[in-house]
Design a protein around this nucleic acid. Sequence first.
DNA 1: TACGCAAACCGTA
DNA 2: TACGGTTTGCGTA
Length: 293
Amino acid sequence: MTMLVNAVSATDITPEGSDYETVRRVIEMITNDYREQPSLETIAERLGQSPTQLQKVFTRWAGLSPKAFLQAVTLDHAKRLLGQERLPLLETSFEVGLSGPGRLHDLFVTHEAMSPGEWKARGGGLTIRYGFHPSPFGLALVMITERGLAGLAFADLGGERACYEDMAQRWPNATYVEDSAATAPYAAHIFDPGKWSCEQPLRVVLIGTDFQVRVWESLLKIPLGKAVTYSDLARDIGQPTASRAVGAAVGRNPISFVVPCHRALGKSGALTGYHWGLTRKRAMLGWEAAQMS
DNA sequence: TACGCAAACCGTA
DNA sequence: TACGGTTTGCGTA
């Protein structure tokens, strides 16, 4: 009700919020059948849409043509995101982010972690309000506590129930209250790059194991348009040989997108996995590529 | 170069 | 104990 429809930007979402569904299928097609390099025409045909219509939807979503998008998610580009040198630490990225003159917007976040005791309670004594909202990556499930955003997940068409359960079981002892009026402002803020600013940072609360929280904090240091490997993260938290455990922790990240787990790649530059579907990881990377230009 | 495969690595449930 | 959103090394096209 309180959603304002003023500034129209490239990231605005259709009323039905269904752009992503189309986009998702396009991405799947061009990545699955990349060998044959399907043309816009053939893709459109398979989707039962006109090429111009498809082009329009895709570009509205990403600010990028399907062709340019495909380029943005190739292995070659992924390697560029990783950067030449594996050594430069993530430590300074916040600093750079705040003062760098040429830097494009990124979502600013202040975070706090739950104490180990609170974690052991498995959410006991915690009230979590939640709601579903359309987003550039499909229907988003937003979960908040008094201390800030605690969870963000994505549902495929009709998968809302599964999505909710996936999240709710992480903190089984919490009390859950449906309250999309309360969560709506969060969704609006997160998915509108125009609202990202360091004056109005997003409050986030990390609920997890000590190890997991350290990994997630590392993820938060990756700037927009950059990527790191799992072993980079392992080194950053001071356990250089734990890259595999890091991978598991990254996979358990409850605040998808905001804690940019999609910016973690395999050492080869390959997209190794994503809890909410590899296609969505590709979508996020491509979408971010467009934000940069 | 590009894979396939096995072995070492480590925090969770 | 088993199981991953990993890596690395080594052998084969």
